[in-house]
């Protein structure tokens, strides 16, 4: 990749609930690139994504680059049941200082549902709303944790198309997923970074 990476992970270690799970994670993410995190359940994909999103500090190593240009989407979509689809999306658009929610609604085929209260949405529709939120953040790097859970084949196609557009316009994504999204993405297997008996970076070994 000739272009400057958007984000670099340098020897990152992270912990879940005080237990170190990954260490020595290093990779770059360039504009237009998608990195897919692979690994069995509990191998630390979510923890790494939360660390990339800045929700938890690294135990060691550092994140370089556009660390404040990241949008995170986790298992929970942060949708308020009492608000309508449009209100949910508009709230996030305004929190992130953008205005246009029409494109996001269109991209995830939510236009027909815009007035419906989120509590009456199906699981897949909620997920689509959660993913539409990414578009209104206007952020360049998406950190996505199992984005296709509860999506049907058609919706996965919608999501893949949105992601492709995002990458073509110079965005990037880190995705923890098991399914093939139908385009070339670099795979990083996190099980290779599993934290051994804690490196010097940690603290509990101070008690050993």
């Amino acid at each position: 990749m000739p272009s400057e990476p958007l984000l670099s992970l340098v020897d990152v270690a992270c912990a879940r609930g005080g237990v170190p799970v990954l260490s020595g994670v290093s990779f770059d993410i360039a504009p237009g690139e998608a990195v897919v995190l692979r690994g069995p359940n509990g191998s630390g994909k979510t923890t790494l994504l939360r660390t990339i999103a800045g929700l938890q500090p690294t135990l060691a190593g550092e994140l370089r680059g556009a660390t404040d240009d990241i949008a995170y989407a986790g298992h929970a979509d942060g949708i308020k049941a009492a608000l309508s689809v449009e209100e949910n999306l508009r709230f996030w658009a305004e929190m992130f200082g953008t205005r246009d929610i029409a494109a996001a609604l269109r991209a995830f085929d939510l236009e027909g549902l815009r007035g419906r209260a989120a509590q009456h949405l199906s699981a897949g529709q909620k997920r689509r709303l959660g993913l539409a939120r990414l578009l209104v953040t206007g952020r360049a790097i998406w950190a996505l944790d199992e984005p296709t859970v509860s999506l049907d084949t058609g919706s996965v196609g919608l999501f893949a198309a949105v992601l492709r557009d995002h990458l073509e316009s110079g965005g990037a994504a880190v995705i923890a997923t098991h399914i093939d999204l139908g385009f070339s993405a670099r795979a990083v297997d996190v099980s290779g970074f599993r934290a051994r008996a804690m490196a010097r970076s940690g603290f509990d070994e101070a008690f050993l």
Partner: peptide
């Protein structure tokens, strides 16, 4: 407390192998 933490750390190490 320090001993309890040491125990905690040892358990973690044992779990991680």
């Amino acid at each position: 407390e320090i001993r309890a933490r040491r125990l905690h750390a040892l358990r973690l190490r044992a779990r991680m192998g």
